[in-house]
Write a protein that binds this DNA or RNA. Structure first.
Lengths: 154, 154
DNA sequence: AGAAAATACTCAGTGCCCTGACTAACTCGG
DNA sequence: CCGAGTTAGTCAGGGCACTGAGTATTTTCT
């Protein structure tokens, strides 16, 4: 008894939403390059020469995961990684020509995929959908560090 | 150049939403039992004695993943798995007493967590949020099998 | 200058998620 | 009754995502 209706649980819906997206991505965008990998390429198109940690921050991946993703992109020849001569801890990342081409090619397809993905909603709803998800995600991310009392921000 | 703004991409937002949810789950619900594991427990509270495949269908996991999740729940002693005497291919699943207790305990906490998770939205927005996500996820899942022409449904 | 703290990254371990190939068991048509 | 097709589950392999521990390098404080 006392089972719950999971279709009203945002977490469960979030998981299903992501699965559905992953599926559509595979068929409409690429079976080689995944959505997080594309996010990394995109971050480096916007800001070439970032280090790993910062890229991870931009796309929302922790230090371990970003290392794996970058490893795969390097293996595919889309990315180069060189020690920062200024700071021996960092690796600076830069797209190869192939990486730039791949990003451009996938950009077109992701736009098409997003249209299909959001097709069940009308234009107003689409904007609302994006806004609501962003607000919830932003707020939950803000809960990470318990935010010390405003009197002691440092 | 020509980088894209990922904050308008539903797939990227879906991933961030799920990450945020996962984080909150860990702190507010359980570090032992994950959200998909809870979904399995919940499915078996609603319908005891289901087989693996059907549980997977109920919670939205493929045959491989559901096998892993069930394996972990069995190792934790929350679940039992026995061959169906009627059909030697199936395993029938049933919660242990501990499994039932765990489900009950977590149900209370998930309700609290959902409140916190959705707190940035007002009541109307929350209902809308759930509705929009569900519609998009359902539609995308329906794209799996290309839906043959209506004249030849069989 | 030298010790302590912070930072960037790696590695091991756990869990979720999928596909494709395989095995065992059942069903159905002839 | 028996072979072909279907179904439930396993296994190998690839990718995402996190934590905690450990290494190397830089910064900071004294």
């Amino acid at each position: 008894m006392a089972a719950v209706d999971l279709t009203t649980h945002p977490g469960h819906l979030a998981r299903r939403l992501q699965q559905a997206h992953h599926l559509l991505w595979n068929t409409m965008v690429s079976e080689e390059i995944t959505s997080p990998q594309f996010a990394v390429l995109n971050a480096l198109v916007a800001e070439p020469g970032l280090d790993q940690r910062t890229v991870g921050e931009r796309v929302g991946l922790d230090r371990s995961t970003i290392a794996e993703v970058i490893g795969r992109l390097i293996r595919r020849g889309l990315l180069d990684k060189v020690r920062d001569p200024q700071d021996g801890r960092r690796f600076l990342l830069r797209l190869t020509d192939d990486g730039v081409r791949t990003h451009r090619r996938l950009t077109v397809r992701t736009a098409r995929m997003n249209q299909v993905f959001l097709a069940p909603l009308d234009a107003d709803e689409q904007a609302l959908f994006i806004d609501l998800i962003r607000r919830v995600a932003d707020a939950a991310e803000g809960l990470r560090d318990p935010a010390p009392s405003p009197a002691a921000p440092r």
